[in-house]
Design a protein around this nucleic acid. Sequence first.
DNA 1: CCCCAGGCGTCCA
DNA 2: TGGACGCATGGG
Length: 233
Amino acid sequence: MSSSTPNLEAVLQTLLAAFGPQHWWPAESREEMIIGALLTQNTAWKNVEKGLARLRRQGGFDFEHLRQLPRKKLEEAIRPCGYFRQKSQRLQKLAAAILNAGGLDELARRPTAKLRQWLLGLYGIGPETADSILLYTFGRPVFVIDAYTLRIARRHDWLGEKDGYDTAQQLFTRGLPSDTRLFNEYHALLVRIGKDFCRPRQPDCQTCPLAGYLPDQIFKATTDKDATKNETG
DNA sequence: CCCCAGGCGTCCA
DNA sequence: TGGACGCATGGG
């Protein structure tokens, strides 16, 4: 509820000093990036890579190929990604929708807000997947919010516990210059923090590069002896 | 054995 | 309208 405004520029400099640029380009083609954005829903990227490799062997990422590929073949290819029945259906609907809209080049002519609304209207595309596609495939300056970002922001009291996707996105969008490369880098760096330090169960605030941005009382809570159940401090 | 991973749609009070 | 719940494989 009581959230404090962070200096997000300073946070970025700290992250860059700690980790360096992540150079996070998730795939080699626009098609592969879009498919990856969908496959990674609630799924480790490691498993997504397996699925993408198998899909490449099944004939590649061309949307026309994807649309006409028998459902069972697609399911088999993306099985390692989990939720493969849902995701195969979502992928084929997405491929069909993109083809029907005239392809990626045609879609790229739309302004960001319109494109986002169009993506959100597709089955199985929520805010994170839509924004990932906007950022990585279409190069739009859209800040992607994910589970890591929400967890980090809530624990640092930049957001309240009940704040969700839109509030988090406003926080980062208002606190930073609107720049595609910057948003890409920032997102990657936050993922790094979320994986290595700001873990769900036992956050490692002592050695976390962002420790200096943690409110005192929360830092104390996370360094407590009996710190097995520190969700937020 | 457990928990977790770069969500989303559905259902029900 | 919002809080559970199902979806599913792979790794620590």
